[in-house]
Design a protein around this nucleic acid. Structure first.
Length: 551
RNA sequence: GGGCCCAUAGCUCAGCUGGAUAGAGCAACGGAUUUCUAAUCCGUCGGUCGCAGGUUCAAAUCCUGCUGGGCUCGCCA
């Protein structure tokens, strides 16, 4: 689809070229009108009033003829206090809508792009246990953002960073060993910071069943290594499955251990040394990150010679850069808020391009049942694993509910509302609306009516009611809004666009008969129905939800 | 104490190139159906956009300072 704002702005700047100075020209930007004021609006006259020492209405009157002459404009009005309102021409509108019918909905919002490689890293929970319900928000945001960026023509990879190295992993392994060793007549103490969930003993049992005898013959160190390997792969399998059930998949599962075993830590440390940004103190190697905006210097290599997470994180992003990504967008929960400053300092100290790393932080999720907040824990007997949540409310409902507010805001997720099959459930509302649109199409074809197609000209001048025009605007602004959502990295806006479209569709449907005697009007309305149907499907594609053709 | 996020209708939240009358869902109340699926739609009620300054022709939106809430400040990851 065309980004109409860009299209109109181009025509405006062409039409007003001689009437505006070089300083004034950039101010000529249109926006969608509010209901009752045609389709698009220029507030340019008010912006010019001061410097031109003229009343806005006078300027509006002066510019109006040129605007009215634009190819895409059917009508242009200069109105007080100083706007020029534009109604798109019928042929222009008809072209836009018809072109929507000839495009695969999955490609409808697709812009020709530069094919730059962008990586979206999200979820990336430690492989030391199953995903928690809270991880669902990151999964939804990250996966929708990735698809959203694809509409902009980027070559997007979805990546999960597997933190399979370091102390957390060690505690995880020893926790399993604590349960597993007794099965072999041995003992292993539960570490202080060990993992206690029931899943740990389940893992121990599973590993024992698989290779208990083999383990017995190994030395202690090899034994632990084998347990770690098996524990990790079992947990990752469960994580992968939970995500798949939520409709989330990854192109890459990137191992932290890989970085270390393949010299990336050494390589990035050398990079730091070459850039002269490290020093030694207290037998540790430090990064002078305060030179790059950090609030304190960071240890890269601990006194015991082990790399810190900071060093490995630097290596990880250095590696991303060398894999050819122009940008890495990392989606983290609010508990990682303190990591942004040091991470950005890392990027700077490595000499990576400004803006290479973007971090999206999402705030916490509160879960409710029937309006009452619930604490999800083993103690309360409530679900705690993401997989259980998805099974309880369903994939599409889970995705939609995790997108109900902006990542910057905290989110309330009502489990009862999410699984209810009623219209106050936004996921259900979208499905219902799509089914309704499909039903109208079926009925129309069923009675042998002429249904608009890409090639057939349709007289959209027949679309004159408030409901017609509002639905029309929802369709025309789609690409503008999607582009904005992608640019500002706000996947939730796609859900709001879809909901708004659905609302306009239902208001239109209720008020205006589509199938009727007046064949021209029927066809014009059918064009709206079909375009809406495709657009709703296009939004659903970005959101990763499935819409049924009938319910 | 420092950093980041939030504060908009009774509740949950949208509102992002600063523009005309601040929107939706839920809740409450009242209407519209021999239906192109009423599983819907419409209307009413409801807002000093946390407070105070500032910039601007114009501020929920930008800037500053407060207040309240959340997250976070390790040679863990």
């Amino acid at each position: 689809m065309l980004n109409l704002r860009e299209t109109i702005d181009r025509q405006v700047s062409l039409a007003l070229g001689d009437l505006l100075s070089a300083e004034e020209a950039p101010l000529a930007l249109c926006s969608l009108s509010r209901p009752g004021f045609l389709d698009y609006t220029l507030s340019l006259p008010m912006k010019l009033a001061r410097t031109r020492h003229q009343a806005p209405v006078v300027i509006a009157d002066e510019l109006q003829p040129a605007v009215a002459g634009m190819a895409c404009a059917g009508l242009a009005e200069a109105v007080a206090p100083g706007y020029i309102n534009i109604q798109l021409s019928d042929t222009f509108v008809a072209d836009q809508l018809s072109s929507m019918l000839g495009t695969d909905p999955a490609m409808l919002l697709q812009k020709a792009g530069n094919s730059q490689k962008i990586e979206v890293e999200f979820v990336s929970a430690n492989p030391t246990g199953p995903l928690h319900v809270g991880n669902g928000r990151g999964a939804a945001l990250g996966s929708v953002l990735a698809t959203l960026l694809e509409t902009q023509g980027y070559d997007v990879d979805r990546e999960y960073y597997v933190n399979d190295y370091g102390s957390k992993m060690k505690f995880f392994t020893e926790s399993i060993a604590h349960y597993l060793f007794p099965m072999m007549g041995l003992e292993h103490a539960m570490p202080e910071e060990g993992y206690h969930g029931a899943y740990v003993s389940d893992l121990a049992q599973a590993i024992f069943d698989r290779k208990g005898s083999e383990l017995r013959s190994l030395l202690e160190e090899q034994r632990l290594a084998a347990i770690e390997e098996d524990g990790k792969s079992l947990v990752l399998a469960s994580i992968r499955q939970a995500l798949e059930e939520m409709g989330v998949s990854f192109d890459t599962w990137f191992s932290e251990r890989y970085l270390i075993e393949n010299g990336w830590n050494d390589r990035v440390l050398q990079q730091f040394r070459d850039r002269g940004v490290v020093y030694e103190k207290d037998d540790a190697v430090w990064l002078r990150s305060t030179d790059f905006g950090d609030d304190k210097d960071r240890v890269l290599v601990r006194r015991d010679g082990e790399p810190t997470y900071t060093l490995t994180d630097a290596a990880y992003h250095f590696n991303k850069f060398h894999r050819g990504y122009v940008k890495s967008i990392d989606v983290f929960g609010a508990d990682h808020i303190g990591h942004i400053l040091p991470m950005q300092a890392l990027m700077k100290s490595l000499g990576l391009p400004d803006g290479f790393l973007e971090v999206i932080i999402y705030q916490i999720v509160h879960f409710l049942r029937g309006g009452q907040r619930v604490v999800l824990s083993k103690q309360t007997g409530e679900i705690i694993e993401l997989a259980d949540l998805v099974r309880e409310v369903g994939k599409d409902q889970a995705r939609v509910f995790f997108l109900l507010s902006s990542a910057d805001s905290e989110l309330e997720f009502d489990l009862e509302v999410a699984k209810r099959n009623s219209l106050d459930n936004p996921a259900y509302y979208l499905k219902y609306t799509y089914a309704r649109l499909c039903s109208v199409e079926r009925q129309s074809r069923g009675i042998g009516a002429v249904v608009p197609s890409v090639a057939s000209p349709v007289d959209v001048s027949r679309l004159t009611t408030a409901e017609d025009r509002e639905l029309l605007k929802c369709l025309l602004k789609a690409q503008d809004e999607v582009d904005d959502a992608a640019r500002t990295r706000q996947p939730h806006r796609i859900l709001y666009l879809a909901s708004e479209l659905a609302k306009s569709v239902n208001a239109f449907y209720q008020k205006e008969k589509v199938i009727q005697e007046d064949a021209d009007l029927a066809q014009a309305r059918m064009l709206l129905v079909l375009a809406s149907q495709r657009l709703l499907q296009a939004y659903a594609h970005v959101l990763g939800v499935t819409l049924p053709e009938s319910m």
